[in-house]
Design a protein around this nucleic acid. Structure first.
Lengths: 222, 222
DNA sequence: CCTACTCTAAGGGTTTTCCCTGAATTCTGA
DNA sequence: TCAGAATTCAGGGAAAACCCTTAGAGTAGG
């Protein structure tokens, strides 16, 4: 039995390239591709893949949101995040979303294949750099301020607030953010206000700066 | 005779994926890969490829600078830029650097292969969206004020516009920018509008992103 | 000198953001 | 189970940003 894989990325070349790359492995079969989080969510019940390779930065629903949706409906699917940016934020958020692996985009073919086989076998797969990051984070959390338990690290922004930041910092208007997250503009406004207050910022422009500065979003890709 | 190709991208997966993708074409042969502009410049004399697929956003020397270097030493090499970002800036700058083609990252295999064959044959290849952008630009230049000839890059930003960007991207409101530069809010609005138009952006949030991404402002201090 | 270009600015209208308040669910930890 | 978060949303008003047009003053090049 081959390991069935679904590839989710909004760049056609990366998608096709990845598929072509994986076609060299006898035990792996790419059964589908999606160019957005929404598409992925819809395709999963139909294709029922064993592993999903998911880009994190995508227009509309991002990889982590999509992962949450998918895991909610089918907890058996394994999700590997492929991101060009390895930030604390992404990793911790990703883990909270239940991802099974995290591979940086500058990994090579071998690493990707190993990651797929590993998570298909039920084990988590995290790249060396990511493991290091997780440990560091764990260590510093233990050290500086006792357990912040479930709370997100830092200023105390919530999960949803981080999602809002990602959207806003990618240059979207309130309306566009609302559409992307399937909530009303009023909700987005409220979240945004809370975020600005918590971070001590004055407007959305400063929020974009903050987000980029603190690695909440990545600048490459779109 | 196959068309020899060099792939330059700092993402391993994209690099390998692209190579794998192109291996399906009998008339194309990937003779080398580089993960940076510097590496590419060094590899060209040795490998002497006919076509180079070059990412634009890379750490260190970016794709356009690398293209200038390479073209200076070997004008026969054809360079195709593969960018996830299709902005007026990149395209016009790219053309000035002597690129032979420009393909967005969301193009598919077919487009890339066609692009390679086209430029190898000595013809420029520009994606539909890019052609549109160029024509629009050409048209608007003809319309509103003839050739701007010598002066700045036609669509280039003026000195004042860069000053405005710096201010805006540091998180200031229009009023604050106006105060800082001793002009009226209306002037700031006008400048901002012109900048957004020139860069093909939709709002100030995207301008902040653009400014940081392109190093117009730094994130330290302030 | 004429032309293109930059920088400045205003008028006037539309849309979006920002602010403040209030409030109904759902989640979650103790 | 119960209080406190977190998430959702609304109304209404003030402020800011955005859009479109027009236009004068200054400047550099042919």
């Amino acid at each position: 039995m081959k390991i069935t894989v679904l590839i989710v990325d909004d760049h056609t070349i990366l998608r096709e390239g990845m598929a072509s790359l994986l076609s060299g492995s006898d035990d792996i079969e790419v059964v589908g591709m999606a160019s957005s989080g929404e598409e992925a969510v819809n395709l999963v019940p139909e294709l029922n893949p064993r592993v999903i390779l998911m880009d994190i930065v995508m227009a509309g629903m991002n990889g982590l949101e999509a992962t949450r949706w998918i895991k909610e409906q089918n907890a058996d699917v394994k999700v590997i995040i492929i991101s060009s940016e390895v930030t604390r934020e992404y990793v911790t958020q990703g883990i909270k979303c239940g991802i099974d692996g995290y591979v940086p985009k500058d990994a090579n073919r071998e690493e990707v294949v190993t990651a797929i086989r590993t998570v298909a076998g039920g084990t988590k797969f995290f790249d060396e750099a990511i493991t290091k990051l997780i440990f560091e984070d764990y260590y510093s959390r233990e050290k500086d301020g006792r357990r912040r338990s479930t709370k997100s690290p830092g200023v105390g922004l919530t999960k949803r607030e981080y999602e809002i930041i990602e959207q806003v910092a990618s240059g979207k208007s309130n309306q566009e953010v609302a559409d992307a997250l399937f909530v009303s503009v009023k909700t987005v406004e409220t979240h945004k206000k809370n975020i600005l207050d918590k971070l001590g910022l004055k407007n959305s422009l400063q929020l974009v700066r903050y987000a980029i500065k603190n690695g909440i979003i990545s600048l490459d890709e779109e």
